[in-house]
Design a protein around this nucleic acid. Structure first.
Lengths: 189, 189
DNA sequence: TGTTTTGCAATGCGATCGCATCGTAAAACA
DNA sequence: TGTTTTACGATGCGATCGCATTGCAAAACA
């Protein structure tokens, strides 16, 4: 056999190419040939590592999901209030990494509307994110329905992300909106 | 020539079929053949009324945009506070009409991320919606940055719509979230 | 009533799609 | 060193794509 290659690394390379194609030209531009070209490899290689296009897309989805999770997990802030703010800002396309990942996420989210296989992990992952945000809210502002506030906050940043990607809201406004929303949430009952 | 048909009506029928395909199977399932089949007409008819697929999709986008605008415009409520609430709820997939239109809107929004021709009308239309919501907010709660609150509110319902479509939030929770968000907005400073 | 124009239906074409198959260079293994 | 297995590259196939072309029945118009 030829030199033993890092199987997972190869898959990740191809997954990255999938995401790059999605970010620049949308989900429907993702074809085996385009992905192969974007990755700078042959189509045979793509097929060698993914049995079907669906499997490739699902892998890319899991890959970018864990990338986002890693970014979120890397946020460390001195106090809960700042932590909450930094966390929400990390979900928006404000850093280079987030700017690259957000369009891909948006495309997968839209596809999840008509594809249950994508929607399922999103439905499963949501409650823990809500719980985590709610926990932070409780730390800053004890009492009140923290879980409800967390859900509202997450819907807010989700929508804000979409509006930023479409160009309806710029970065400065987005940051100001997050701060304003947090201020209202954490000072009032 | 054959019987004079209502040209715009024919286009609207096809546009409806486009939206139905998008709602059930996503944007990438929209092909001339699928749309023709969904509309129960021949492919030649679709081509007769739309020179290109892009033109057809753009028409469907404008069509559903104006449909949503009509639904919003049809909202009438006794007082500004109720008006604001009903307006926001109308943007969510809660009525049969809205439930049919929301997935289509979501697909177009996602496509707008990578297609400026779709993003442009969305960018242009946003400010007036913001201004209108801000106007209502001012009526209920004079003082404060109503425009900023309006932007936040619209981002919130946008994200909430996506989460509902994916199944992360059910209708009951969504209504409660809107009411809660409004309560906080309109009672505090 | 004849002519013309409109509203299609039907068909064809080249490109691209996902996927299957085949061939092969090369390295791990015996 | 010979065998086997791995990692592809290359090619082909049937389906589907958007779009162009062609043909024609029917109704408006002269």
């Amino acid at each position: 056999m030829p030199k033993q290659v890092d199987h997972d690394e190869r898959r990740r390379e191809i997954g990255d190419a999938v995401c790059r194609v999605m970010a620049s030209r949308g989900l429907d531009a993702v074809s085996l040939r385009h992905v192969a070209a974007e990755a700078g490899v042959s189509m045979g290689r793509v097929q060698h590592y993914f049995a079907t296009k669906d499997e490739m897309l699902l892998f890319a989805f899991q890959q970018i999901s864990s990338r986002v999770a890693d970014r979120i997990g890397a946020v460390h802030s001195p106090d809960p209030r700042t932590f909450l703010r930094d966390l929400l800002l990390e979900l928006l396309p404000l850093s280079p990494a987030a700017r690259a990942e957000a369009p891909v996420l948006a495309a997968f989210l839209a596809q999840a509307v008509v594809e249950p296989r994508l929607a399922e992990p999103l439905r499963e992952g949501a409650p823990q994110m809500v719980a985590f945000i709610a926990h932070l809210i409780t730390q800053v502002r004890p009492g009140g329905d923290a879980e409800r506030d967390a859900m509202a906050l997450l819907a807010f940043v989700d929508g804000l992300m979409m509006q930023m990607l479409i160009g309806q809201v710029d970065e400065v406004s987005a940051k100001a909106l997050v701060d304003h929303q947090l201020a209202r949430l954490l000072t009032s009952g």
